[in-house]
Design a binder for these strands. Structure first.
Lengths: 145, 145
DNA sequence: TATATTTATGAGACTCAATCTCACAATAAA
DNA sequence: TTTATTGTGAGATTGAGTCTCATAAATATA
């Protein structure tokens, strides 16, 4: 999806929710989508500030919530008390290997696990909304150090 | 494992780490092990206080870290900023279904997923230390409301 | 047992991510 | 435009978790 198409889709989502089109909201979306990193709100906040874009922390937090709700972003909690967000735009589903030494996050996807996961939900008569599957350990780089 | 055996094992772990045997540490372990709930530190703190046991929040937090390290407890982060702990004593490994409506936590175990998970780690040359697999959604009780 | 040494405890201060407040600004509708 | 509505931002607030350090308790030593 190109940038203009993305902005259009975002505008549609805003309209649908009766939210106004503000420069801050577009800037936050663009900043998130511009990298495939797992970004903290503070990180996004400073990145925009450094670009001379006027934005507050509150607006970043509020907008991230909205981006998650409308599926432009995914929130990642790795248990250190800091929420991270990754773009879902043009990105297929995956889960995460997290290195306890260096903090690196590696993405993985396993179709069989996804299928088994759904069958567990069926067994429990549980309606899955989302899931997190995180494997913590030591990455190859850190092992060889 | 009976209570006396547990206390003995705990005492051994303390000795091994040159930590002192204090009434607070034993009380926190016993309180955690006494239920199969997923407990918050504040919850443990008040439970002990209500039993007339002298303990501080700091001691609860410090002791929980130790219990996790020595495998008496498992920490659960469900992304709401509150750490929860469950007893690992006499409890086999499992993962969690978490209801977004009522907060209920249902345990599940799937051997096939565990095996696939290990094979993913092998593929990535990644040494797994621990993992979390959480499925968020709506439980049967909440669906029928 | 008495004393010395080491470690633990606890009240409250502190940290920091996240949320809230509310006056003012910007956007969209009339 | 004008009006009505919604958004923004600086800073205050919240709350889980951590830190401090004087005191207390547990263990080692005599």
């Amino acid at each position: 999806m190109d940038k203009e198409q993305l902005k259009e889709n975002f505008a549609k989502a805003l309209k649908q929710e009766k939210l106004k089109r503000t420069p801050q909201r577009f800037a936050i979306l663009e900043e998130l989508v511009s990298s495939d990193e797992h970004r903290e709100c503070t990180d996004i906040y400073f990145a925009l500030r450094n670009q001379g874009i006027s934005v507050s922390r509150a607006t970043v937090y509020r907008t991230m919530d909205m981006l998650v709700k409308y599926d432009f972003a995914r929130r990642l909690d790795i248990g250190d008390g800091i929420a991270r967000y990754e773009s879902k735009v043009g990105v297929s589903h995956h889960d995460h290997l997290i290195c306890l030494e260096c903090g690196k996050i590696i993405e993985f996807l396993n179709r069989d696990i996804e299928v088994l996961q759904q069958s567990i939900c069926n067994d429990f008569d549980f309606d899955m909304t989302r899931h997190t599957h995180q494997i913590f350990g030591v990455c190859p780089d850190c092992k060889s150090k």
